[in-house]
Amino acid sequence: MESKNKQTAQIACLQSNLSAIRKIAGWTSEQLGDRIGVTKQTISNLENGKTQMTLTQYIAIRSVIDFEIQTNKENTVLPQVVEILLNRDEEYTDEEREKISEMVQTIAATASGGISGKALAAVSAGLLGGIFGGPLIAVGGIVAGTTWLAKILKDKKK
């Protein structure tokens, strides 16, 4: 039962941060929808909480995020945000999660305003660096492909 709760928490975490992650990736709702085979309205409904994200949608979205991280080396902020928000979520208190989420929303708004590359990385470092008392987490190779997938599906075999 505990693994089901963790799975549900991971899905909820992605859903609540989907809009920010999408904007930091530089995608419109339509572009993300095209990448996973759904409409922009489906993405909008997920982002607004009108529909609950399914495990299949979670896997599809995480896969396209991973692909973006692996292929777009210019976007150094996306892997950091994914690491902090999704891969390390359980390490934070509710208060820390709220603070991190607010900062990521600011970074996403900056990205939506057309700021990218080194300028976006500077904004991100200025905001998120303070949480960790120093430079942001080094994320070279954080997305080793499927660590998150193994984590969410490990109990499916039982």
Rank of each mutant, 00 (worst) to 15 (best):
M1K: 02
M1Q: 06
M1R: 05
E2P: 06
S3V: 12
K4G: 01
N5Y: 13
N5A: 15
N5P: 03
K6L: 13
Q7S: 13
Q7T: 09
Q7N: 10
T8N: 11
T8Q: 13
A9D: 14
Q10Y: 08
C13I: 10
C13M: 10
Q15D: 01
S16G: 11
N17E: 04
L18I: 06
S19I: 01
S19D: 05
A20R: 06
R22E: 01
R22D: 01
R22G: 01
R22V: 03
R22C: 02
K23V: 02
A25R: 02
G26P: 07
G26S: 08
S29E: 11
E30D: 05
E30S: 07
G33T: 00
D34Y: 00
D34V: 01
T39N: 01
T39A: 01
K40R: 09
K40M: 01
Q41Y: 03
L46W: 03
L46T: 02
N48H: 13
N48A: 12
G49Q: 09
Q52M: 10
M53F: 07
T54L: 12
L55K: 10
L55C: 02
Y58L: 13
Y58V: 06
I59R: 15
S63R: 15
V64E: 12
I65R: 00
D66H: 06
F67S: 13
I69A: 06
N72G: 07
N72W: 06
K73R: 14
E74R: 12
T76N: 10
V77G: 03
L78V: 14
P79W: 09
P79D: 08
Q80S: 07
V82A: 12
L85M: 15
L85Y: 07
N87K: 15
N87I: 11
Y92T: 04
T93L: 12
D94I: 13
D94V: 14
D94P: 10
R97Y: 08
E98V: 09
K99A: 08
I100H: 00
I100K: 00
S101R: 14
E102T: 14
M103P: 00
M103G: 01
V104Q: 09
Q105L: 05
I107Y: 05
A108V: 12
A108E: 12
T110W: 01
T110Q: 06
T110M: 02
A111S: 05
G113F: 10
I115S: 03
I115V: 15
I115Q: 04
A119N: 09
A119R: 11
L120F: 01
A121G: 04
A121S: 12
V123D: 00
V123G: 00
S124M: 05
G126V: 08
G126P: 04
L127S: 00
L127F: 00
G130L: 14
I131F: 07
F132T: 04
G134L: 02
P135C: 03
P135V: 11
L136I: 15
I137K: 13
A138L: 10
G140L: 08
G141S: 06
I142E: 06
V143E: 12
A144N: 15
G145W: 11
G145N: 15
T146A: 13
T147G: 15
T147Q: 11
W148A: 10
W148D: 14
L149I: 12
L149Q: 07
A150T: 09
A150E: 09
K151Y: 14
L153P: 04
L153T: 14
K157W: 03
